[in-house]
């Protein structure tokens, strides 16, 4: 796509960036004493539907919906955002498989604005017509459905679909702009690190890890799995040697510090997009920044609602894009 095609979108994103939360706004939110005060603050900032009657979770889901409504208005093909939208789409696939086999239907477990839609997925899974799914979902859906049906192992079902999701992200990045490709590689690398850490903590086998890990450039799954088998220190040493020293440092502090590092790392990666005027990068950066902002607000609201100490919330607050 020619650069000019993103000129309108980037200019609109620049205008939207003004309303993104900066660190000082997050500090102001943190300074609110109660959950109710936080909600009033957010409503004053234009969050939610303006009724003043929404709870925090509904407000956050409303804000997530707004991200994709905005993106749709930019006139860019949604295929360009596959690397961002796949996790939601594959999450919906997992949910559809599980609810079909358990016969429990919950609409709120699904993400909105995905392809295929919630109802399409339900219908496809119910009729076992996997051929109607997108190519990158078809095999994984069939495999996960049969695995869950025969073994009742929900974790294995998740592993199969999560891996298919990461592979779809990498595949989409092959023909995408540099910034999307870099984002995809980072997402997959971070997902691999998370898998390795969890497998190390739960003492999973080498075979299980190899089934869950996804090959990507700059990270050898075999070496990562072996490092995880060797224990926490071996895993940290491997991460340091493969250019993820900061991830290793965060892991040594706490799991929440590591989660924070993952999000901060992505935001940092998108910082140069502030200076781009004609590529899709700023649009991607805006989506990631909004999701990061909503996640941070969610952490603060949850902490305030449960009366957690400020220091506990502060150590989980992500870096802001602006």
């Amino acid at each position: 796509m020619s650069n000019t095609n993103y000129t309108f979108a980037v200019a609109r994103i620049r205008a939207l960036e003004v309303s993104l939360f900066s660190k000082s706004v997050i500090d102001q939110l943190m300074a609110c004493k109660t959950y109710e005060e936080c909600m009033r603050f957010l409503e004053d900032k234009g969050w939610g539907d303006g009724s003043g009657k929404q709870d925090g979770d509904t407000m956050l889901s409303e804000e997530r919906k707004k991200i994709w409504e905005t993106v749709e208005e930019l006139g860019i093909s949604m295929d360009a955002f596959g690397v961002i939208s796949y996790p939601n789409a594959f999450h919906n696939l997992k949910t559809a498989i599980k609810e079909t086999l358990t016969d429990k239907h919950r609409d709120d477990f699904f993400y909105e604005n995905t392809v295929p839609s919630r109802e399409e997925l339900r219908e496809i899974i119910k009729s076992k017509d996997f051929g109607r799914l997108p190519k990158n979902m078809e095999e994984a859906a069939k495999d996960a459905y049969e695995t869950l049906m025969h073994t009742n192992d929900g974790q294995l079902c998740d592993v199969i679909i999560d891996k298919a999701c990461l592979e779809a992200i990498l595949e989409a990045a092959e023909s995408a702009d540099d910034v999307i490709a870099a984002y995809a590689r980072t997402v997959v690398a971070v997902a691999n690190i998370k898998i390795a850490v969890r497998c190390q903590k739960t003492k999973k086998s080498y075979d299980f890890m190899m089934r869950a890990l996804t090959n990507c450039s700059g990270m050898q799954t075999d070496a990562l799995a072996k490092a995880a088998l060797g224990g926490f220190d071996t895993l940290c040493a491997y991460l340091e040697s493969s250019g993820y020293g900061a991830a290793s440092e965060a892991l040594k502090i706490s799991p929440s510090a590591f989660e924070r590092w993952c999000d901060n790392h992505l935001i940092e990666m998108f910082q140069p997009q502030k200076f781009e005027s004609f590529t899709i990068g700023p649009v991607m950066a805006y989506i990631i920044a909004r999701e990061n902002e909503i996640k941070t607000v969610g952490i603060i609201l949850s902490g305030k609602r449960n009366g957690l100490p400020d220091s506990f919330i502060t150590e989980r607050i992500r870096e802001m894009y602006v």
Binding site: T4, T7, F8, A9, V10, A11, R12, I13, R14, A15, L16, V18, E73, S277
Partner: peptide, 17 residues
């Protein structure tokens, strides 16, 4: 034309500019 695309992007969000 190029500048017009960018201008439309901004005005669609903030007509005051």
């Amino acid at each position: 034309g190029t500048a017009g695309q960018a201008a439309s992007g901004v005005v669609s969000q903030d007509p005051g500019k």
